[in-house]
Write a protein that binds this DNA or RNA. Structure first.
Lengths: 171, 171
DNA sequence: ATAGATGCAAATATTTTGCCGCCAG
DNA sequence: CTGGCGGCAAAATATTTGCATCTAT
C-alpha cells in the first residue's frame, strides 16, 4: 500500500468534470422514476452545465433566464430531491462567502475544494492520498464511507503578498 | 516523502482534545486584549469543556444553566469573535443533523470528522496522510493553506446491518 | 385518471443590526 | 472614565409548509 503520489491530478479550470456529462441529472431522474417536469428539466440543465459552484439564488436566477416558469420554491425542492437521491453534493466552501450552500453535480471522482480566503477563487484537486486516507479510515474506524467532503482555505500565489497588509487582521 | 501510515492516531472518545486545555479560550481572549466579561467567561467555559460539538442553541442552553445573564445574541457575537480570531472551528457535519453549525475549540492538531449517517455519532480521526496531502496541495497549487476541514459520512459497524433495511431509501 | 409537482402566500427558522445603558480595564 | 459590550426588539435572511391547482405518465 505505497503512496501513489504520481497519480495526483490537478484541475486547470474551475470545475474538473463540469459539463463532462451533460444531461446526466435529467437521465438519472428519469431512470429513477421521477417526473421530468418542465421546471426540473431547466433546473438540472443549469446545474449540469454550470462551470462553477452555484448557490440556490444563482441556480434560481439562471433558471429564470431560461424559463420564467420556475419558482424559487421549486428550486429548493428540486435541489433537495437531488440531494436526497445523492446526485449532487452540497458544499459551503468554509463559509468564506457567507453561510450559503453551494451545489455541484456529483463528480466522477471525489475531489477537494481549495478556496482562496482573499480572492475567493475556488480550485479543485484530486489526490490519490485522499483516496488512500479514506481507505485507512474505513479500516481503522470500521466504517463504510458513503460520502466525504474536504474544503481547504488558504492564500493563492497572487494573494499572498497582499496578505501581509490586508489579511484577516482578526477584526 | 514516504507515506507515514504508522503515525496515524485514532481517537477513542468523542473529542480528541476535549478538556485538554481548560481555560484556553479565556486565556487567549485575555492575551489578545479582549474584555473578559461575565458572559464571555461563561460561554468560553462551555466551549472549552464540551465533550462533543455544540451548535449555537446548545451553547446557549448550557451557558444559561451556568448563568441566566447570557443572552442568545451574545452567544452569536462571542462565537463570531472566536471565529474571527481563529480560536474555534466551525463545522456542519455534512448537514446530517440539519443546516446548523457546530463549533469546537481548535484542536492541537487538525483532524477529520467521521459521522455515521444513521446514528449520527461523530468520531475524530488524525492521519499523517492528511497532513501529507495538504503539503501536496500547497506545493502543486502554489497556495499557503490556513485552514482545512474534512467531514466524512458513512455507516459504523453497528449501523451497517440495519442499513440494508432502513437506510436512505432515496425518499 | 391520478399520484406527484408546482405556485403562491404565509409560517418558521436563523442570524444580524440599531440603539441605549452598563461595566471591565 | 470611557470605549467596548451586552440586552432588547426589530429587521433581514433563509428555508419550509399548507393547500389549491396543474400535469406527466
Amino acid at each position: 500500500m505505497q503512496s501513489t503520489l504520481e497519480s495526483t491530478r490537478v484541475s486547470s479550470g474551475e470545475r474538473i468534470n463540469a459539463g463532462e456529462r451533460p444531461g446526466r441529472l435529467e437521465a438519472e431522474l428519469g431512470s429513477r422514476g421521477r417526473r421530468l417536469t418542465r421546471q426540473r428539466r431547466v433546473i438540472v440543465r443549469v446545474m449540469d452545465t454550470a462551470q462553477r459552484h452555484l448557490d440556490i439564488d444563482e441556480i434560481y436566477e439562471r433558471a429564470r433566464k431560461l424559463d420564467k416558469h420556475v419558482h424559487r420554491v421549486t428550486v429548493y425542492r428540486t435541489v433537495d430531491l437531488l440531494k436526497k437521491l445523492g446526485l449532487i453534493d452540497e458544499l459551503d466552501l468554509l463559509h468564506i462567502r457567507g453561510d450559503r450552500h453551494y451545489y455541484e453535480s456529483h463528480a466522477a471522482r471525489e475531489h477537494i475544494h481549495v478556496a482562496c480566503l482573499r480572492c475567493g477563487k475556488v480550485r479543485e484537486f484530486e489526490s490519490a492520498l485522499y483516496d488512500e486516507m479514506k481507505r485507512q479510515i474505513e479500516e481503522q474506524l470500521d466504517v463504510k464511507i458513503a460520502v466525504s467532503r474536504t474544503e481547504v482555505g488558504g492564500y493563492c500565489r497572487s494573494c499572498l503578498p497582499a496578505n501581509q497588509t490586508k489579511a484577516k487582521a482578526a477584526h
